[in-house]
Design a protein around this nucleic acid. Structure first.
Lengths: 148, 148
DNA sequence: TTAATATCGTTTGCATGCAAACAAAGCGAG
DNA sequence: CTCGCTTTGTTTGCATGCAAACGATATTAA
């Protein structure tokens, strides 16, 4: 486990690694990942969780489109869908009107979990933003949106 | 009586994936990664770059300590150091006073690259933050630091 | 209709990123 | 000095994350 106290910044160098936005984004992501792991049901990963939430929202979605809507590469979304399918959290069926397409749909088990998943998601976001005040959270999310 | 709040979507209960901090951190990281790839010398990855910058700053560092100071797991830093060593960007030598330790040092080639690496790093951070004004950048980095 | 183009999905390869189990070496209390 | 604990590094396993090349299918333009 990486501890925050392990990272110390020298103050006078011309290039301070710890002050660079890329480094800080990576560390913030690590902290979020830890919070995510402790609160998410079923041991889902962030990408698996995102895919489930999105496919629940859409009801039905081609694999590639699901990847685009969850910001995942085609190779990444394939692996995610494969693992979700192996756990019977989504099903894949052919699209009669397009033989290339693999339509992804949530299973009944997943539909029953929907409320709990969203509840966990809200708590994860809440805990991740807990170092910030309400006003700071709004500011941070607005600026983060500009960077996406 | 019917209130306006009865008609509007229950924002407390909804869950919009694209507005969650974890999702946005991941997408912002992806954008940064693209900028990084287009500007970094030698095709270095962000973790390889971080390790090089840090070992140049320290001059000499045990492998585990290098991992802690760059926010990398012991397994991750091992892979990074292995790949840097394979490209002759760092060298590893034993510590006479502690037989467990593998001391990592930059090679001459890396020392010669130091200035260019830091210059590229500054440009990468600049480009990543380009959607924000100067004031917004200071605010964003300050809040991001609180989240790390 | 045919040919060029675009889209969908798969596969391979490389590089993180972390948990867990493990071995070797150092250290501190008794 | 010895036992227990800590630290350092390694290895394995799993899951992203993306580039690139590929085949199959759709769509569009000539």
């Amino acid at each position: 486990m990486i501890m925050a106290t392990d990272i110390k910044a020298p103050s006078k160098a011309s290039y301070v690694l710890e002050e660079q936005v890329g480094f800080m984004l990576r560390v913030a992501g690590q902290r979020h990942w830890g919070i995510f792991q402790s609160l998410v049901p079923l041991g889902l990963t962030p990408t698996q969780f995102s895919a489930l939430i999105k496919v629940l929202e859409l009801g039905e979605c081609s694999q590639n489109e699901l990847g685009r809507k969850t910001a995942m590469d085609v190779a990444t979304i394939k692996g995610v869908v494969d693992r979700l399918r192996a756990r019977d959290l989504v099903a894949v069926k052919p699209d009669p009107s397009d033989k290339r397409r693999a339509m992804v749909v949530p299973t009944e088990q997943t539909k029953a979990l929907a409320h709990g998943l969203r509840q966990a998601g809200r708590q994860i976001s809440e805990d991740t933003l807990s170092p910030l005040s309400e006003a700071e959270r709004r500011t941070f999310l607005a600026l983060l949106a500009k960077m996406s």
